[in-house]
Simulated scan of single mutants.
Amino acid sequence: MFHSLGRYILLLRLSFRKPEKFSVYWDEIMREMVSIGIGSLGIIAIISVFIGAVAAIQVAFQLLSPYISKSVVGSISRDSTILEFSPTISALVLAGRVGSSIASQIGTMRVTEQIDALEIMGVNAPGYLIAPKIIAGLTMIPLLTITSVILGLSGGYIACAASRDIATADYVLGLQNGFNPVIVTVCAVKSIAFGFIITSVCSYFGFYTSGGSLEVGQSATKGVVFSCIWILFADLVISSLLL
């Protein structure tokens, strides 16, 4: 375990050494931003709308009472969406979609000796392959989380509009009442941490792949599994520290 942690830290140090040619790295960063951000927008949008709608329906079912204000549905849906649903569930989905792609891409380059060729030519392979992915993840995953929050709350609004139990005016009033800005801070910290975990952990497993195509698939699976575990652990730690 400590050996793996040491290799992981060393790989991160090598990844963020001074680049040989910044313009090449910049092109890679832009390409990874498009791949991670635009490529994941569709699945995040679909999941967010449905999760927001389901959250509103379930909160309304559990709390609908003549003694409880109907606006509480909007308040609870808002807090749960911003604090947990959007950052954590989006990260778990992205670990499968983005993480497996990163691990398999780098793993394939390793087993086909493309990484060895880069190192022979004097290119810092971790910096060229991993750093742009981490930077793109730190940039795009928080943006995807913001999109997820907006669409999740919109999904709750749609659910209320389609339901006869909660008026949309009560839902919107609940979104506005009792807002605590700290939940936005927690959401931002989580999304940044999750972006780093997904890209760095999956890059690690891909970079140290050995064997053939079977091992590439195994590395991608390990990258996704370990990313999900660390996402849940980081979720617990961040929530405990900031709330």
Rank of each mutant, 00 (worst) to 15 (best):
A53P: 11
A53N: 09
A53L: 11
V54K: 06
A55N: 09
A55H: 03
A56F: 00
A56Q: 02
A56C: 01
I57Y: 14
Q58R: 15
Q58D: 14
Q58K: 14
V59R: 12
A60W: 03
Q62K: 14
L63A: 02
S65H: 07
S65E: 07
S65K: 08
S65F: 05
P66V: 02
P66G: 10
P66K: 07
P66R: 08
Y67Q: 13
I68Q: 10
S69M: 11
S69R: 13
K70M: 05
V72C: 08
G74W: 06
G74S: 06
S75D: 08
S75R: 13
S75T: 12
I76Q: 06
S77K: 13
S77F: 07
S77N: 15
R78G: 14
R78M: 15
R78H: 14
S80R: 12
T81C: 14
T81W: 09
I82W: 15
I82Q: 12
F85N: 03
F85M: 11
P87E: 14
P87F: 09
P87T: 13
T88I: 05
T88E: 00
T88G: 02
I89Y: 03
I89F: 07
I89W: 04
S90R: 05
A91F: 11
A91N: 13
A91Y: 08
L92E: 03
L92V: 09
L92S: 04
L94I: 00
L94Y: 00
A95V: 05
A95Q: 06
G96D: 11
R97N: 05
R97P: 03
V98K: 09
G99Q: 02
G99A: 04
G99Y: 01
S100E: 04
S101N: 15
I102H: 09
A103R: 01
S104Q: 01
Q105V: 01
Q105R: 02
Q105M: 10
T108N: 04
T108Q: 07
M109C: 15
M109N: 13
M109P: 10
V111S: 03
T112F: 07
Q114F: 06
Q114H: 08
Q114R: 09
Q114G: 11
I115R: 02
I115D: 02
A117K: 12
A117F: 07
A117S: 15
L118Y: 06
L118K: 07
L118T: 11
E119I: 04
E119T: 03
E119V: 01
I120E: 05
M121F: 11
M121D: 11
V123M: 02
V123I: 09
N124H: 13
N124C: 14
G127Y: 08
G127S: 10
L129P: 13
P132A: 07
P132Q: 10
K133C: 04
K133S: 01
I134E: 00
I134H: 00
I135G: 07
I135S: 06
I135H: 00
G137M: 02
L138V: 13
L138D: 14
T139P: 03
T139S: 09
I141K: 05
I141N: 07
L143M: 02
L143F: 06
L143I: 02
L144W: 00
I146V: 03
T147Q: 11
S148V: 14
V149F: 05
L151F: 08
L151W: 12
G152D: 01
G155L: 02
G155K: 00
G156L: 06
G156Y: 09
G156E: 09
Y157R: 08
